[in-house]
Design a protein around this nucleic acid. Structure first.
Length: 532
RNA sequence: GGGCCCGUAGCCUAGCAGGAUAGGGCGCCGGCCUUCUAAGCCGGAGGUCGCGGGUUCGAAUCCCGCCGGGCCCGCCA
């Protein structure tokens, strides 16, 4: 819709024009302050320019009116244009708001260590990534969702040892002491039980088999992680295991050429010359690679697989890590501008205004699965999709358990369910409804129709800006318009029944499509649950 | 000390490629069910857009400097 308008403006005015949505509906559907920027070069007042420009659109059948007001150019789309577009959308529901973008994008997200279940911070990155994935795919991009499994390094040994300690304590009744940095939590007891069944109790004392235990355990933990993600409608296409990457190390190192060097019996990357604070060690004195080494091989592998663009979603605490990975990418001979790192900030939780208590059972973290159990996947997804991912977020669980307008997810789903209910109560056939022309609707209905048809622009904007909250905000606003329309306007049994129902079908389509892009199911009907 | 993010009504926030009276929501106050689900709608009070400069016809938005908060600054991952 906006593209059509933009194209027409470009054609008529011979230049690219900024189009915005006017604050006040009475100004029309779209507006541009173009006359202000032209004022200087034409040496005329913005009012006069806007007047002149407005008159050059008189012929267009897309617009019903083009007016100049205080220097702004305000456009009002014609009913026939909106009506045609709406009819097309209802005939092609699965195509609505889809784009024709090209390009292969590799999106890496979550990538939490396979040493324990996901916590609430992981959940945010997971939801953010998955929402971008859905948006990008809807727009036509060929996107791959990838999880990088850090199954090498100290934390894996620590996982093995932690299970041994849990096994000794809980299953063998030995008294053990957990040093500060060991893994804790209920899942370890379960892993220890399974380990005893599989390997026998000797496994808890055999230091030489710790690695074997750990490699088994990380696969078990990954099963938990994959399940938690699946419960939130998040699915990955590929998993890349760090442990499989190192065989490629020699080749990758030589590929970096002068980007790496030896000093003090260690191998360093010359990242300082590429904007990092200092050079970094990639291989320690004892020959063990650092975490960065794995990431270098991994990113080399990513680029060798040949995508047009790469997006990584990292926890904000890793932001300092970006320059060194970008440096490595450049040493490898690739364009680091193709690698985009998005950050997902901290999450803190409240419950009824008090800080949410971390449970000992969970190992003093807030588990994603606990929160999903408490408020549901839909609410969790909506919360994380409602705020810029790179801003710290604090939210109160209680707010998302309420069943009224203070809970935005219920508010939106109620709007959708209301439409479905009213459609089912009408005696008109779908055919009758679809044949009705969307004309002469009146102001309220016109606003609703236009907003419902705005979804494509919102989707594209949300993806391009990587700000998924634009979609959730849009859905909230659209739901509000629907509720208002519903209240103001009697539908069934009026002469306008068919066209109003058609309008509502467009709104429902927009809500359902939008919710789907947020990974949330649009409910067909809602029944009030007992408050208990 | 350096880097990144943030500072908008009692609380949570939108807007931040400069543009028309700073939008919402929660909470608070007051209305609306013989009408398709009141899980809704309408109205009201509440703002020095952290502070100070600068750029501009125009700054919440851009630049500089402060103040305040969070995160990070490992040969951990």
């Amino acid at each position: 819709m906006k593209q059509r308008v933009s194209a027409l403006l470009r054609e008529t005015l011979g230049r690219e024009v900024v189009l915005e949505k006017p604050r006040d509906r009475s100004f029309g559907h779209f507006a541009t302050p173009i006359a202000f920027s032209l004022a200087k070069e034409l040496k005329k007042s913005p009012m006069v320019i806007a007047q002149d420009l407005a008159s050059s659109f008189e012929e267009s059948d897309i617009f019903s009116s083009v007016e100049s007001v205080k220097g702004y150019l305000n456009f009002r789309l014609s009913e026939s244009f909106l009506s045609e577009y709406a009819a097309w959308a209802l005939q092609n529901t699965t195509e609505f708001a889809k784009g024709d973008k090209n390009g292969k994008i590799l999106l890496e997200f979550v990538s939490a260590n396979p040493t324990g279940p996901l916590h609430i911070g992981h959940a945010r990155g997971a939801v953010y990534g998955d929402t971008l994935l859905r948006l990008g795919r809807h727009l036509g991009y060929d996107m791959t969702a990838e999880y990088y499994v850090n199954d090498a390094g100290n934390q894996i040994d620590l996982l093995g040892l932690s299970i041994q300690l849990h096994g000794r304590e809980n299953l063998l009744d030995e008294s053990v002491e957990y040093p500060e940095s060991y893994y804790r939590g209920e899942y370890l007891d379960a892993l220890a039980r399974d380990a005893m069944e599989k390997f026998g109790f000797e496994i808890f004392h055999d230091e030489s088999r710790r690695r074997e235990l750990a490699m088994w355990a990380k696969d078990e933990v990954m099963k938990i992680i994959v399940k938690d993600l699946g419960d939130t409608n998040i699915f990955f296409d590929t998993f890349v295991y760090e442990s499989t990457l190192y065989e490629d190390w020699e080749r990758v190192m030589s590929k970096m050429g002068e980007g790496v060097y030896e000093k003090d019996a260690k191998v360093w990357i010359a990242s300082e010359s590429k904007g990092d604070e200092k050079d970094r060690v990639v291989v320690r004195e004892d020959g063990r690679p650092t975490y960065l080494a794995g990431d270098i091989v991994y990113h080399n592998q990513k680029f060798e697989r040949g995508y047009d663009h790469y997006i990584n979603i990292w926890g904000a605490d890793h932001h300092g890590y970006i320059p060194r990975v970008k440096a490595a990418v450049e040493f490898l001979g690739y364009d680091s501008k193709k690698l985009e790192v998005l950050l997902s900030q901290m999450v803190s939780l409240l419950k009824d205004g008090e800080p949410y208590k971390m449970s000992k059972r969970a190992g003093n973290v807030i588990l994603m699965s606990d929160i999903v159990e408490e408020i549901g996947s839909d609410a969790l997804r909506f919360i994380f999709a409602s705020k810029k991912s790179d801003t710290a977020l604090e939210f109160d669980l209680a707010e998302f358990k309420k069943q009224d307008s203070s809970n935005p997810i219920f508010y939106i789903q109620y709007a959708h369910a209301r439409i479905k209910t009213i459609l089912s109560k009408s005696s008109l056939s779908e055919e009758d409804i679809l044949l009705a022309p969307l004309e002469g609707l009146g102001e309220n209905a016109d606003v609703l129709l236009f907003d419902a048809l705005l979804l494509p622009e919102v989707v594209e904007d949300a993806f391009n800006s990587r700000q998924v909250q634009k979609l959730s905000d849009y859905l909230k606003a659209l739901a509000a318009l629907l509720h208002k329309f519903y209240y103001d306007c009697r539908i069934i049994g009026t002469p306008n029944e068919a066209k109003y129902l058609k309008l509502l079908m467009v709104v429902a389509l927009s809500l359902k499509t939008g919710l789907g892009l947020l990974g949330i199911e649009a409910k067909e009907h809602m029944s009030k649950e007992d408050e208990s």
